[in-house]
Design a protein around this nucleic acid. Structure first.
Lengths: 187, 187
DNA sequence: AGGGGTTTTTGATAAATGTCAAAAACGGAG
DNA sequence: CTCCGTTTTTGACATTTATCAAAAACCCCT
């Protein structure tokens, strides 16, 4: 919990009053490798803070699993579209490693947002960061070759390559597993 | 200005007190076709609400212009990365049609956010919508064929096809102009 | 309506990547 | 340590899309 408090204040500081309100809002969850945190079709009613571990979001396309994001220590994860709109999720969230998470329900979060301007600000700022991240990923994905995408990954987020099976990385980059394998074999 | 007030309250309602504070914060701008609202290298210090007209964001890649987003009536536009981080923009923003915009500076917006929890909430909710939009575009771009991308565009945002030159649309979709032309010729 | 610049289309070819199938390598369980 | 299932690699080939170049169409301006 302390890690969560520390982490979020990198976005925006909180008064001790607000900080004190937080611990009761989150519920601790421990899950093992390969377990599903969310199954497609379910409504995602929680936002999760990943204290330790790793997971992925994936969906099915023509019978294939497409991994489109990963989460690691200190990431907030959820099926964003479902969490925000209340519609059923199109994706699954699966643990890649045994993990410890802190869950907050949408209702509780909404209360916090209403009660504390500070939290509202913090979330707004967090969104800005996440938006910029996604924008960068998007621009890369669209105009780089498979080789460049892999090199980028190697430079910017080497821990993904170290901790995630190749097949998941391939669809994350938007290329086939075979192509990725061939790229990698040429250093 | 009334259009702006109406529009933003689709995100979240505002008390009349907050509404009254807004008009003074925005400055009206009129620009003609092909003019630049922002040039790459400049720091983007404003957020714009596009009342009427159309524009595009584009950057240079290997000597080619890549249009990566469009703005139309009722869109908020800015060079997001630059506006948020204060770093020089990598992109240009150019008018596709004569347009009327309302500009708010980052400082003024920050004041508003600090003074009015309601505005903070509204912006947070607006970000959610913009994030979801980008996510959808991203997933599409990565896993659809050129033909599917064009069909999607035709269905979801036909006004883009009607109002924007083909070359800009091609790079927006991440395909070459020739490929797009060939796709289109087969209905 | 004519003319010049811009945008779009068409054609030929090349490059990058995907697909399918099978072999090899890896890794955990007993 | 060995075996079995999973993951990765390799090979042959097909497909999609990009690229370059030139022709055609379009559009605005006077």
């Amino acid at each position: 919990m302390q890690q969560l408090l520390n982490h979020i204040q990198q976005y925006s500081p909180l008064t001790s009053d607000t900080q004190n309100a937080l611990p009761d809002c989150f519920k601790k969850i421990a899950l093992g490798k390969n377990e599903l945190l969310l199954r497609e079709g379910q409504i995602c009613r929680h936002l999760y803070f990943l204290e330790t571990g790793a997971l992925r979001g994936f969906y099915n396309l023509d019978g294939k699993e497409i991994t489109h994001w990963f989460g690691f220590e200190k990431d907030f994860v959820t099926s964003f579209h479902s969490f925000i709109t209340g519609e059923p999720a199109v994706e699954n969230i699966q643990l890649l490693e045994g993990s410890i998470l802190w869950a907050i329900s949408k209702e509780t979060l909404t209360e916090l947002l209403n009660k504390h301007h500070e939290i509202e600000r913090l979330v707004r700022i967090a969104y800005e960061k996440y938006y910029i991240r996604l924008e960068e990923r998007f621009v890369n994905a669209q105009f780089k070759t498979a080789k460049e995408l892999y090199e980028n990954l190697l430079q910017q987020t080497p821990y993904i390559i170290e901790r995630v099976p190749l097949g998941f990385i391939a669809s994350y980059l938007g290329i086939s597993q075979e192509t990725l394998s061939r790229i990698r074999s040429k250093f």
